[in-house]
Amino acid sequence: MDSISAKEAKIDPVSREVFIKEHIPFVIYTVSSVTGRYISTENDMEYSIGLEALNNAIDAYDESTSKFETFATTVIKNRVIDFLRKENRKGYLLSESDVMDATMDESGSVDMRMEIAEFTEHLKKFGFTFDDLVDVSPKHVDSRKRAIRLGMKISGNENCMTYIYKELKLPVSNIIKLFKESRRFVYLHNKYILSIAVIFDKDYSIIKEWIGDVIRGDEYESQ
């Protein structure tokens, strides 16, 4: 299926665009495995080099020799390695981490880090960490929306929030009465709901903005 798509992408610009979009995860993974770190944003130079290498690989690919992924992996890896060598030869005075620090500071990441650090401390008081949230956060997007919506509502209720900070747990019975939620749902996702309530109550604006897609979707639904 891939070789056919690569063949089509070679001759048809629209198919090429679709083909490249489909292979973005592949580019991310390949570039990341060469550099040994995650691509930080879409503007990452290595990521751009990887995309360009994928485009070139489509042109140079001969389906009779190998699978497209095998061929493209070699092309992307070689391009990224060449780029990194050239960067090293330039001999910048600033180290990679210095550059990263500067970039992150510019984009307001210091505030982000402060917010995350403060949020982490709050979670510790409740007896769990982000690592625990991996296992208890709702897997299905609809459940997440429902939990986030409930967390937002709880954050707007002063009595509930007072109880939460005092008792370090959700006032489950109160929540069921006030917001007409099922007991099972509240119990099942109580840590996640509690975290969302704290995010909105403490007004962690950057984190709120980060999960804005879900909130906005939620708002559209309610309109």
């Binding site: 993974y29 990452d44 981490s97 880090r113």
Partner: peptide, 11 residues
């Protein structure tokens, strides 16, 4: 080079 708060692309 992982940093708290950094955006990462992963598969």
């Amino acid at each position: 080079s992982m940093r708290i708060g950094a955006d990462v692309l992963y598969t």
